[in-house]
Design a protein around this nucleic acid. Structure first.
Lengths: 150, 150
DNA sequence: AATAAATAGTTTTATATTAAACTATTTATT
DNA sequence: AATAAATAGTTTAATATAAAACTATTTATT
């Protein structure tokens, strides 16, 4: 999406384009790494697993809040994870509106297998950039995000 | 996806998380703006429109290359755009493998309507950041991208 | 000329995403 | 106690995405 009417604008456009490209390459790169190790887990599922490894048996709303996704999106993600027997939904005796999402033994087992892979995955994104520049870049992105979300 | 084993790693993770968040907020922000103006075009369709406004009647492969998307993804996107009568597929007499994607009169008309909106949209991402910092941020992102794509 | 390799596009299958309308349950208000 | 408002989750319908297997056509190789 290249609009070149305005010098300042073209910078932000380039930034947003690059953001899209990185996001994409990140996903495919992850999928490839998982396939190499015969693991059938998407990056989105992993994100939920990570949350559960830290604190098991939380309701879907908490997952919604922590992953910054839509309710319906989490419903479907938990469906898929349940089908793969990574998690299960349990009733909450204290509040019948809640679904408590809990790791299955299978889901727990993955923790040991996935954590080192994850570290590898993220390491592959590390580039020869000073901590100062990295901080500054993060600052720019966070400002943009803040601008749009308040 | 918060992994905190390693100081350096946590920086890149935060950066990637923020990238995801911006990408998402960007999409919903765009969708909202279009809805305000009663325009039924997704951000992905707009990207294709932009390419065609510049150079009409190109084959799908060129759209694939320029948008950095999968063939199948473009097939389906052009399907949807055809259904909305924004573009049409024409046969290429010189090479029968090609589909030449061309703007309809409707698709051309949108140009006048959308360009100012687009500028507004991108302007809303502009933040109080020096050109130097913006450049530096872009440099960091491009390095990461290069790292993974060669 | 015949065959192999490359290129353009589609279909299939599966995942993820979200807005909107919905059900069920709990909490707040009158 | 009855009603309204808020909260948790699902369903539906639509879009986007991409890997893999496929068809059709063109180009390169033998």
């Amino acid at each position: 999406m290249k609009v070149i009417e305005n010098q300042d604008l073209s910078e932000i456009i380039k930034l947003l384009d690059t953001i899209r490209d990185i996001r994409k390459v990140m996903r495919t790169h992850f999928q490839k790494k998982m396939k190499e190790h015969d693991i059938d887990v998407t990056i989105e599922m992993l994100e939920v697993l990570y949350i559960l490894w830290e604190k098991d048996s939380i309701n879907q709303q908490e997952i919604v809040d922590r992953t910054n996704r839509n309710k319906a999106s989490i419903t479907s993600l938990i469906d898929n994870m349940t089908r793969r027997e990574l998690v299960q939904r349990n009733a909450d005796p204290n509040d019948r509106r809640n679904n408590l999402v809990a790791l299955t033994p299978e889901g727990k087992k993955y923790q040991k297998k996935l954590k080192p892979l994850l570290e590898e995955f993220y390491t592959s994104f590390q580039v020869d950039i000073s901590s100062k520049d990295m901080h500054s870049a993060l600052g720019v992105l966070e400002k943009i995000y803040q601008k749009l979300t308040g």
